[in-house]
Design a protein around this nucleic acid. Structure first.
Lengths: 291, 291
DNA sequence: CTCTCTGATACCCCAGAAGTATCACGGCTT
DNA sequence: AAGCCGTGATACTTCTGGGGTATCAGAGAG
């Protein structure tokens, strides 16, 4: 009698995200009536009202938003089950490493080199994602390990191995007065009238209020800096962001950023373990600690 | 075409655990033929062989054991989704705290008292489980927070808050020569001929080899000590284990045990946060640091 | 060689998921 | 006020596919 099916959860998530049965049905590729019925049946089986239908609009109840979150993790886990099983059957399954495009580039190169040098290590396949997407990639099985950054990324629920720590720099349009300075403080870069900090979308897709431009990819941001519209504070090693029109100035009192290797707990396959070993070797290697 | 249903995963897990279609079908309450078909269809959809059917016996392939692990987390997550959603709809949902029976009893009492004293904190419902079961309780939504112990419990995948640290004692039958000593070392208690260490079942249910008695609950163990059949090394605060026939002797070089409050990452509800706050208060409270 | 144990096949039935058509109701326009 | 549109629910039908029973096929045990 219990036991939620992933189909029901997919349906509920679609409705909860769209807050509109018609659009949700379209997105799912089914008609609206079976969707209404399925959600209603889910509510009956749980004995809980998930949606407030208001004849004109649909809203999540408190229980509904709990289920939305839980359902997402179930669906991620199911997707991960399928992907990981398929990949386990692949004779020479490479390790999939996901990282934000442009971050810790040099470290990544060294990690790949170290792993390639290790005869026991499996080949590594690099997957690039947008900011903050790494956790989702790990949870849904699209990647086995990730490079993440403390404290900016949410590491909750993952096993990690620290790789290296670095300061942050302000990325400014060249020609701006601040770009002349040898160093800056957070107070210097906060609330600069002509360079308001950009605004990233929240988890629900809406943007916080503020004067800065709305942005949702790194390349947009890089271009906005080059155009003299905004500034940003990023780890010193994020060289890939740097355009000719950019100037990087150290921010002395910004929090230090630690690059870590992260993987789902209890999924430390031999291949991931080999990568962690290579990473640990990097940390103590005699070469420069460039991130 | 993709998208595993929880029903399929339940079926597969039953077969993978029983390694026998007939028994698995019985356990699931269905007939054997539909079970065979469902598993076969799962294999077809994944394009992966999960089971090695050997006309006389069934064995997991490597991919199959990957799916077994993944499927368990999916099913746990689905069960958690149902339970947490139902509880979220309950107007005065108490926090469910799970702990091993008998461990950290005094600390638990103080934690409950501190939480009760906090007007904002929700009421706490205590759930007791067997050794090592707490993680499963958290993952499947049967509990919201757990008391766990580092390094004995696997804390991977949870957020934690340290509560207190203590040494370990050896629990011996009174009258045994070792029980006379003021303290012991690990070397003293390892390989005592007439008191072999008990053997716990592994995750798969089998027992490791060795001279000690097989055991799977704490009360069995406590009785075996009282009968002079075994000894064990446990945190000093596990008073509930102590029978009149027991003697506890400090083991000076045993690893320190830290009791922690643990909860699923990203599920730090206000109620859990209140409990964590109460716990943090305990740690710095002026009273004795009894665990 | 036969009996037993076990998983696979063949076939049928029906529950239930999805589709179509339509209704019911609220709010907006004119 | 009347009519229209937008939206979710209901009624009814269709048909896929999950489940049951009977049976087969091959491997070991005796």
């Amino acid at each position: 009698m219990d036991d939620l099916e992933t189909r029901e959860l997919r349906y509920f998530v679609a409705v909860a995200e769209e807050l509109h049965f018609g659009r949700a049905a379209q997105r799912l590729g089914i008609a609206q009536p079976p969707l209404s019925r399925a959600v209603r049946q889910l509510e009956r089986r749980l004995g809980v009202q998930l949606l407030q239908r208001d004849r004109r609009s649909v809203a999540l109840t408190e229980a509904g938003s709990v289920l939305l979150r839980e359902a997402r993790t179930v669906l991620d886990a199911a997707a991960a089950a399928a992907r990981r099983t398929r990949r386990a059957a692949d004779p020479q399954h490479p390790v999939r490493l996901v990282t934000k495009a442009g971050a810790s580039h040099e470290l990544l190169q060294r990690l790949l080199a170290a792993s390639a040098a290790d005869a026991e290590a499996a080949p590594v396949e690099v997957v690039l994602c947008e900011v903050g997407e790494q956790a989702r990639f790990l949870r849904s099985g699209r990647a086995d390990v990730a490079l993440m950054h403390r404290p900016v990324d949410d590491l909750a629920g993952f096993d990690t191995e620290d790789l290296c720590t670095e300061g942050q720099v302000a990325l400014l349009p060249s020609g701006h007065p601040l770009a002349e300075r040898p160093w800056l403080t957070l107070a210097d870069v906060r609330d600069v009238p002509d360079l308001p900090m950009a605004r990233w979308p929240r988890l629900d897709g809406s943007y916080p209020d503020g004067p800065g431009p709305e942005v949702h990819t790194q390349s947009q941001l890089a271009q906005l800096v080059a155009l003299g519209k905004t500034l940003l504070v990023i780890p010193a090693s994020s060289r890939a962001w740097q355009w000719p029109e950019h100037v990087a100035v150290p921010v002395t009192d910004a929090r230090e950023i630690t690059t870590v290797l992260a993987w789902p707990p209890g999924r430390r396959s031999p291949a991931v373990a080999a990568l962690a070993r290579a990473a640990a070797g990097l940390r103590t290697s005699p070469s420069t600690p460039a991130c």
